[in-house]
């Protein structure tokens, strides 16, 4: 079971108090975008074995969406951070870099 800290309330939450929201840091392509971009925004999702960024919602509580950096292989949680951001905060990236040397990721533009 995952235990995640809600960055808005500071509570350690059980997975069953949360709602999964899939991959984080997707860039939205709406009207006027190319078919390829729109398809990629709608359907194409990463499924990494290792470091992954996800969206979770504190459903039984504050109701807030937040982001989680975790490892899909070991279930290790690197950290959580508020969703009002386009890319992971530097301190989270530093933690991942320290624990997973050589890890790289396509930073969203």
């Amino acid at each position: 079971m995952l235990t995640l800290k809600c960055p808005y309330t500071g509570i350690m939450l059980d997975e069953s108090e949360l709602e999964a929201g899939g991959e984080a840091h997707l860039k939205r392509y709406g009207p006027e975008s190319s078919d390829d971009d729109f398809e990629s925004y709608l359907f194409m999702r990463k499924n990494p074995k290792g470091v992954h960024f996800e969206r979770w919602r504190h459903a039984y509580g504050s109701g807030k969406w937040f982001h989680v950096a975790r490892c899909t292989q070991t279930l290790e949680v690197f950290g959580t951070y508020p969703a009002q951001t386009l890319k992971p905060p530097q301190e989270i990236l530093d933690i991942i870099a320290e624990k997973r040397p050589g890890w790289s990721w396509d930073m969203p533009s």
Partner: peptide, 23 residues
Amino acid sequence: PADLREQSLPVGELRRTRMAQVA
């Protein structure tokens, strides 16, 4: 599922959570 140990849920603190199936 809330952690009910006193250090996690001290007296006076409000904890919103789930009780079996309900909020």
